[in-house]
Design a binder for these strands. Structure first.
Lengths: 162, 162
DNA sequence: CGGAAAAGTTAGACATGGCTTACAATCTTC
DNA sequence: GAAGATTGTAAGCCATGTCTAACTTTTCCG
């Protein structure tokens, strides 16, 4: 274990998190917002994974210095961990808003897709999307009118069911 | 059992394809368009994976009846395989166009992101996005003017470098 | 205080999807 | 037609991330 990871940490390299680890981090951030302490069980429930899976993930996140973790002890996010969790969350929000408020997709569906894309879309893309959503809203004389028009357009151009 | 991809060879199940397998299928479709025959090497080059990885994937795709494959023989797509490849490709195209023509992102970057999201975004979302791109283009009196405005908006609202 | 329930961990298995190394088949070229 | 290059396959290893079963630690009460 002292091989690669430790060196990267010392040399300041920021290894990109896997989608899975990002999910764990994000889940912890949410739980902390809602309740005061994070329990492995909360994470397991939220992500629908087993408790052992949570333990594994926590060990990895701890090795990356994103959480403060000791067996059977309280879990907290480090500053870096919190920073990363916030970033993931902000991507999620931007995507969610684009899907619901611009593409006019049902919130639950938007939520599901945003959850997956947030791990893939890089910062620049999400930022551009954020600006685009704002641009669209600000430039529409009447947002409601705009929505109606787009909905109508969608109806008119709907493809026949596959 | 030793080759991770090889487990379901005998069962030939028709489940949803993994992102990885979709990539292989898509790559084969492209190579077939460009040249007449597909070689494992072409796929390996295109996807930047080793030749053995290609063999594994081909065995799985063959079990799923998406390709016609026999060791050392010519590879072709079955009708079902071609159908699936075309679907993936069409998603790719819609995403690519949205990123380049609406979000005004550099083509190479758009390409890279589209390659990943195409495996995640469901049909309905991509269809909605397709309609949105068209709607935007058709409703802009002057597409060039619109682009300029959006670019200006982006410049003005650019976040300070993190 | 002490024991049961709840929560957390360890150990070990499995699936996916990469890789290298080494061997086998095919193609090229003389 | 055979040697050497190219291409394809087989075997085995590694990493990630999931799981179950079994064990340990902590917590909660009576």
């Amino acid at each position: 274990m002292r091989c690669g990871l430790g060196n990267k940490i010392l040399s300041g390299e920021t290894e990109r998190l896997s989608a899975s680890l990002e999910d764990y981090l994000e889940a912890m951030f949410f739980v902390i917002l809602e309740k005061k302490g994070v329990r492995a069980k909360d994470i397991a429930d939220r992500l629908s994974v087993s408790r052992p899976s949570v333990t594994s993930a926590l060990q990895v996140l701890a090795a990356k210095r994103l959480i403060n973790y000791a067996p059977y002890d309280v879990i907290t996010l480090t500053d870096e961990g919190e920073k990363q969790a916030e970033k993931i969350l902000s991507k999620h929000t931007v995507l969610q808003e684009f899907f619901t408020e611009v593409l006019l997709i049902e919130p639950e569906k938007a939520e599901a897709v945003a959850c997956k894309i947030e791990h893939i879309a890089d910062d620049a893309l999400v930022e551009r999307l954020r600006l685009f959503s704002r641009f669209i809203k600000e430039n529409a004389e009447s947002p409601e009118e705009w929505k109606k028009e787009f909905m109508r357009y969608c109806r008119e151009h709907k493809m026949p069911k596959k």
